[in-house]
Design a protein around this nucleic acid. Structure first.
Lengths: 195, 195
DNA sequence: TCTAGTGATGACAGCCGCTGACATGAGATC
DNA sequence: GATCTCATGTCAGCGGCTGTCATCACTAGA
């Protein structure tokens, strides 16, 4: 007889998303989530350092993929192109059949400032890691920070479009389009009329 | 006889920064801060919605100043120049004699992830407000988001340089320099005549 | 001058997030 | 079969935060 079922962590995440969706984040206690899975509250906090984090697992996989993409980019590529390569690698983690899940998750996050705060923090972590990877490749400051932060913004904007109702393009396509917008914003399209 | 001294809020903020610096954020309870000022813990939470917020008051003044600067920019100016105008207005809130205070505050924030998270959130709020102001001026999406997020990044980077040891340039000067870096990062070299 | 607000505060009870400490027992290792 | 490992249960407890009600200097109106 098995003492504990495997996959406790994943079941906690699924139960949390479901309960948050039903009753809301604040109306769901950590003990509720644990009970739904049949474990103790203490076990919940052994898997996740805090209640919000149950929604933000898997972030490290994204970061790893992006950094891997950054590293694989040609050595002589401009910083923003290197970032673009990283984002493309990250986009592969989001095939189209994850859209529904991403939408549900986003809906929960959007309604609770504490969750929005955590999400921002996660994106900041992505930017920080990209910056470090750029610096390791030889990019100087503040170009590395600016490129990394811009990349993080592009990811966020493109992701928001990706989960929009009726959107059919892939995340990678959307990232490319947003990146083009960014280039035209700060480059040729905006260098006129500065006075 | 006066029932309560005025300026409770400000005294709470000063006591909090002092205690956080001495013992650290987590080692200081809200009750400690309240006791240092001679009020009850309940009063602390009447002035600040949560313990972190005691370090982040005054953010709204920055946001207001930046938005005011945005609104005052020429109607036909490109989005990033409008953002630059907003940042210049915001920089006026940070005369050089605030550097010491800003450094102290930054040191506390830098050591506690929960405070970094809140700071990110505040900057995100600035970006969101700038974006709305840009949209209200007629800037389209996603240019508005990208310009606003870029502006927020420029502010953060410039602010970090401003409080660096040995730095003597003003915040406005640093913002201009960082903005130039951003422009050259994403495309054509800048050719600016901004006063 | 009496009276009815007003508003910042104190006092207190209580929920919940989160942690430390210790015990437990099924499976793996040797 | 003895021992080790390690995810879990149990329990006590702190601190963040909130709702509720009382207090009382001060103010405004009758």
């Amino acid at each position: 007889m098995v003492r504990w079922e495997p996959g406790t962590r994943e079941r906690l995440q699924a139960a949390a998303l479901e309960l948050f969706t039903e009753r809301g984040f604040e109306q769901t206690t950590a003990a509720d989530i644990a009970a739904a899975v049949g474990v103790s509250e203490r076990t919940f906090f052994r898997h996740f350092p805090d209640k919000r984090e149950v929604l933000f697992d898997g972030q490290s996989r994204l970061v790893d993929a992006v950094v891997e993409g950054l590293r694989a980019a040609p050595a002589d590529a401009p910083a923003l192109d290197v970032v673009a390569a990283g984002l493309r690698a990250g986009a592969e983690l989001f095939p189209d059949d994850l859209r529904a899940w991403a939408r549900l998750r986003r809906a929960v996050i959007a309604e609770h400032p504490a969750l929005l705060e955590r999400e921002r923090h996660k994106m900041a972590g992505l930017a920080r890691t990209m910056r470090a990877a750029l610096v390791a490749r030889g990019t100087s400051e503040p170009a590395a920070t600016l490129a990394a932060e811009s990349g993080s913004t592009v990811f966020t904007v493109a992701f928001g479009q990706w989960i929009a109702e009726g959107e059919h393009r892939s995340l990678a396509e959307l990232q490319t389009a947003v990146l083009d917008d960014l280039r035209s914003l700060t480059g040729t399209a905006s260098d006129r009329g500065t006075a």
